[in-house]
Amino acid sequence: MKKSKYVTLVLITSALAACNKSEPTEPNWDSNEVYMRSDSTASYTHTQGSYLPLFLWYYAFRPYGMFGANGFRHAGYYSGALSRSSNIGSSAAKSKALRGGFGGSRSFKVGA
């Protein structure tokens, strides 16, 4: 046979496919309540679980920081689903690493 004898996936699940679904237009107020924060020194934000974007699994917490003379300086993590107070807390700079030096050429898909 010229095909794989058996195929099993251990990482990819249907949850990945769900990343392409659009957000619901109306929140489901019957959903479970969720409290989140992106920094252990920050206060929690109360939000509604199913109103969060479905691609939360991969994209919820983005790095944040600022651009200076030497480029982008990472300072922590950020989620658009949370309030400012729950994103920042008191950790002004959690990392020494400079980020954003790759990945800036294009914003669309790469594959050929």
């Binding site: 990482l11 990819i12 990945l16 990343c19 898909k109 790469v110 594959g111």
Partner: peptide
Amino acid sequence: ACIKGSLEDLTTVEYLRDCAIQ
């Protein structure tokens, strides 16, 4: 690694990672 915002690229990378895990 891949860019953010492209499910096609993310799926390709996650598939390769799946195989590497196996």
